[in-house]
Simulated assay, not measured.
Amino acid sequence: MDGLFQVFDIASTGMAAERFRLNVISQNLANSDATRTEEGGPYRRKAVVFQEAVNKSLKGGEEFAGVKIVSIEDDPSPFRLVYDPTHPDANEEGYVSYPNVNVLREMVDMISAQRAYEMNAAVVNSAKSMYNAALNIGR
């Protein structure tokens, strides 16, 4: 039965990581036109960094334990400049710095995160079905 719970644990780390990634994508989309932040300047796009999670096994080695979130990084790409001299945040030349958020890219990332979440949910359902079938063999 230990293998069953390991499958659930691994899939749940993937589901939690993708849910967190969706939250960050939502934050990026919500701030796609924010020219001012509390830190000053326009909003800077955020990206989630994942890493393989490993646990020390009882046999002395390492075993795969899913995925973990390492950090949330700021996207270093340049801000989008739009000429609008009437905007309150316009510089001396009349350009406004808008966030480096590309809505199309965020939508693609959102679909990718959604599919990865669904894939992990399918793994959980497949494991449940497999173990139920194994339990029914003895009947």
Rank of each mutant, 00 (worst) to 15 (best):
A34T: 07
A65V: 03
E118F: 06
N91E: 09
K128V: 04
V54G: 09
N132C: 10
K68Q: 15
N23T: 08
V101G: 03
R115Y: 03
G94C: 03
N55A: 10
E39T: 02
E18W: 10
G40A: 00
A127I: 01
N55P: 15
R21V: 04
M119L: 10
N120Y: 02
V48K: 08
I25H: 01
Q6V: 00
R115I: 00
V103P: 12
E92V: 07
N28Q: 00
T86M: 11
T13Y: 04
Y117T: 02
A90G: 01
L58H: 11
I111R: 07
L104I: 14
D9V: 12
E18C: 00
E106G: 04
E38D: 13
A121E: 15
N28P: 00
I72P: 06
Q6F: 09
S97K: 14
E92H: 07
T86I: 07
Y83M: 02
N28W: 01
A133W: 14
A17E: 05
N91W: 06
E106K: 04
A65E: 15
G14S: 02
K56W: 13
R105W: 12
K56V: 09
I25L: 05
E93K: 10
V96W: 11
K59I: 05
G60C: 01
G60M: 04
V82A: 00
F20S: 07
M15D: 05
P78K: 05
E39A: 04
V54N: 13
M110I: 05
M119A: 06
T13D: 01
G14E: 08
G41L: 05
T86R: 12
N28R: 03
A47S: 11
A133C: 10
A34G: 02
I72H: 10
V24W: 11
